[in-house]
Amino acid sequence: MSLCKTRLQEERKQWRKDHPFGFFAKPCKAPDGSLDLTQWTAGIPGKAGTLWEDAVYPITISFPEEYPSKPPKVKFPANFYHPNVYPSGTICLSILNEEQDWRPAITLKQIVLGIQELLDTPNPDSPAQEPAWKAFSKDRTMYDKKVKEQAKRYVNAG
């Protein structure tokens, strides 16, 4: 629908004009050489001073046809280590959930900032994977170690 495409181009424009430092976001190239505005890749930098610092974590964002009535689906790579990320990489975040806090006015910038925030402040009440959630609630040393190991793998990402 036309609302979806005008809004997506608007998001692209706004992002170009102003986006938070250290982040990137771009639509994917379709096989025919055009840019598919419904499929984006983006990078989320870990906040300085946290376990997640010095790395940029890649995500994919897919916008459904009903966007912005319905939220985009945002994923880290599969098996990403975080209590609120499903093994498939899908991020469990209230602002990305249609039944919860998604509002059509939420922008791409707000989404990526929300995800950056989630990295260091997981929500233990909505576990999405066993390993990270268990470690986070019961074995913090192990959790910290795993997160730092993961950060090393994404140092050069983006």
């Binding site: 495409k5 997506l8 181009q9 055009s34 840019l35 046809e65």
Partner: peptide, 28 residues
């Protein structure tokens, strides 16, 4: 900016990869 089909961007100031393609080469 030029968008064809449901949501495929073929041109804006930041994306001129296709600028020298003929219209028939571009789908849409």
């Amino acid at each position: 900016s030029i968008i064809v089909g449901k949501s495929r961007l073929v041109y804006d100031v930041d994306f001129d990869d296709n600028i020298d393609s003929s219209l028939s080469e571009l789908s849409g």
